[in-house]
Computed example of a mutant assay.
Amino acid sequence: MTSLPAPSPWTAALPEANPPEGMALYQLPTGTYDTRAALAVRGGSFRDKRHFAANAVLVTHPGGDFLIDAGFGEQVDEHVKMLPLFTRAPYTKTTTVYEQLVRAGYDFTRLRGVILTHSHWDHSSGLDSLDVPIWINKGEREYAAKDGDGKVFRTVSVGHKIHEYVFGGPAYLGFAKSFDVYGDGSLVIALAGGHTTGSVVVFVTLPSASPVASGKRYAFIGDLTWQYDGIKRRAERPWLLRTLADSDAGQVREGIVLAAALVDVMRVVPAHDVGAYDGIPVLPRVMPS
């Protein structure tokens, strides 16, 4: 198997970030679904079954909190039925994002919105029980409005306020366009495209005083690759899957190479790799005040 070109590791200074004290990051697992590695990444084995994560991530910040993706929702069974038969896979649902936040005594007035890495069903299903704005860029909003893979999004987004952000910032770690959510460099959205028209990478930088993963940086890359070995080996999806799943395979390849250049300077997290979330704490039973 031929890997994509090896990038030069990132050696330049990282973009300036001034994350405030009290900022934190949590993972909210909502379930998994199963597929064979041969269908997940080029060169994978049919004997290797992968559990695909359906996670959301909560970013808490004094300027208001955000979720990155929404995981499986309360009506996920109905959402799966909306998918073409050949794309359905065995899945296990656990606890929705909404239920986890309620259990933790979370103050929903703090939640400013859900930032979708893209609009596919396994990232948007949980919007069915979250009454918060959806943060999405114009390209992804247009994709979700007309593409067949946007059917679940179109269902769960009804009644939600849509906040359409604009990429007004400069290139960010090789990605051509960016948007700094808080203006302090701690949460930056960069346009990746390729998997869907407006799919993004969400970069998070934690403060040095953080009790967990002090000063660590994360790149939540959505579905540039489904598994981390796609980044490690610079391996795209198999031909059939990238034909079905990606809107621009060439743009995905560029994104994989850019993400691979960052693995020595931050944690790169493909959305569906269970192990990639190791070290990110789960939401506590009682949220810190």
Rank of each mutant, 00 (worst) to 15 (best):
D180A: 07
K216H: 13
P133R: 07
S208G: 14
R217N: 09
H120G: 01
L127N: 04
K151I: 11
F153Y: 14
G198V: 03
S186R: 08
N137Y: 02
S124D: 07
R217K: 13
V188E: 00
S186L: 10
G183D: 11
V132H: 04
V212W: 10
L187H: 00
F153E: 10
K216E: 15
K146P: 04
G174M: 04
L187M: 14
G126N: 09
S124M: 03
Y172A: 00
E142N: 12
V202F: 03
V204C: 06
G215F: 12
K161H: 11
H123S: 10
D122E: 12
V202R: 06
D149E: 13
S199H: 13
S214C: 07
P133M: 07
S178P: 03
S199T: 14
A144K: 07
I136N: 05
S210P: 09
A171P: 12
G150N: 07
I162C: 09
A171C: 04
P211N: 11
I115S: 03
L206F: 06
G215D: 13
L130N: 05
Y182I: 00
L130K: 02
G139F: 08
H123M: 11
E164R: 08
V158N: 12
A190L: 06
A144C: 05
D147T: 10
D184K: 10
D184F: 10
T205S: 14
A209R: 13
G174V: 02
A190S: 14
F220V: 05
L206A: 03
G198S: 09
F220K: 00
S124L: 01
